[in-house]
Computed example of a mutant assay.
Amino acid sequence: MKYTCEITIDLPRDAFIEKLDNPENMRHWQQGLLGYEHLSDKPGTEGSQMSLRYKMGKREFEMVETILKRKLPDEFHMTYDTKGVHNTQRNYFKDVDGKTLWVSESEFQFSGFGMKLMAFLMPGVFKKQSLKYLEDFKAFAETGKSVLDNG
C-alpha cells in the first residue's frame, strides 16, 4: 500500500528542520509516543536505529526506526518495523516563499493474515494517521501546541 500526504508549515525550512530533527520534540506531535531509545552509537545518521514505544488505545507496541537517507534540508528517508508491518517513509522538504512544504510518501508492506486483512479492509486508517502526525507537527511547529496538552 502506497500513498502521499503533504502539508505546508508556516516556518522557514531551517527552523522547520530544527524542530523536526530533534527527537525530544516527537512527544509533542506524535500522539501515543511513550518514549524512544537510540540503538546506535551515532544517532540521527544514515544506518542508525532508534526504538520507539507507542500506546494506541489499550495496545502498546514498539517499532524500530532505521535512517536510510539523510540529506537535510531537502530529504529524510527511514523505515519503521514492527510485528507484521514494514513501513518505508520518504520525506521531502521544499522552501516555498519562506514556508516549508513537507511531502511524505509512505509505503507499507504487511506480513501475517491479521495485518494484511486490516490493510485491505481499512486502508484509510493508515493515511489518516499519517496526516494527523503532519497536522500535529504543524500545530506544534507554528504555535507550540503539543498533543500532550490534550489530556
Rank of each mutant, 00 (worst) to 15 (best):
G44L: 07
G44W: 04
G44P: 05
E46P: 05
E46A: 15
G47R: 08
G47Y: 07
G47M: 06
S48P: 02
Q49T: 12
Q49F: 07
M50T: 11
S51L: 14
S51I: 07
L52N: 14
R53N: 08
R53T: 07
R53A: 12
K55T: 01
M56D: 14
G57A: 06
K58M: 10
R59W: 03
E60Q: 14
F61L: 07
F61P: 04
M63I: 04
M63G: 08
M63N: 13
V64S: 10
T66Q: 14
I67A: 11
L68R: 08
L68D: 13
K69E: 06
R70E: 08
R70I: 01
R70F: 02
K71H: 11
L72I: 08
L72C: 01
P73G: 05
E75W: 00
E75T: 10
F76S: 00
H77V: 03
M78G: 06
M78R: 10
T82S: 15
K83E: 13
V85Q: 12
V85P: 03
H86V: 03
H86R: 14
N87E: 13
T88R: 15
Q89A: 14
Q89F: 10
Q89T: 13
R90I: 02
R90W: 09
N91Y: 06
N91Q: 15
F93V: 00
K94M: 08
K94S: 11
D95H: 03
D95L: 02
V96S: 04
V96T: 10
V96D: 05
D97C: 02
G98C: 02
K99E: 06
K99V: 00
T100E: 01
T100Y: 01
L101D: 00
L101I: 08
V103N: 01
V103E: 04
S104A: 12
S104W: 07
S104Q: 11
S104M: 10
E105Y: 06
E105H: 11
Q109N: 11
F110H: 09
F110E: 01
F110V: 02
G112W: 03
G114I: 15
G114E: 08
M115P: 03
M115Y: 05
M115R: 11
M118L: 15
A119D: 05
F120M: 14
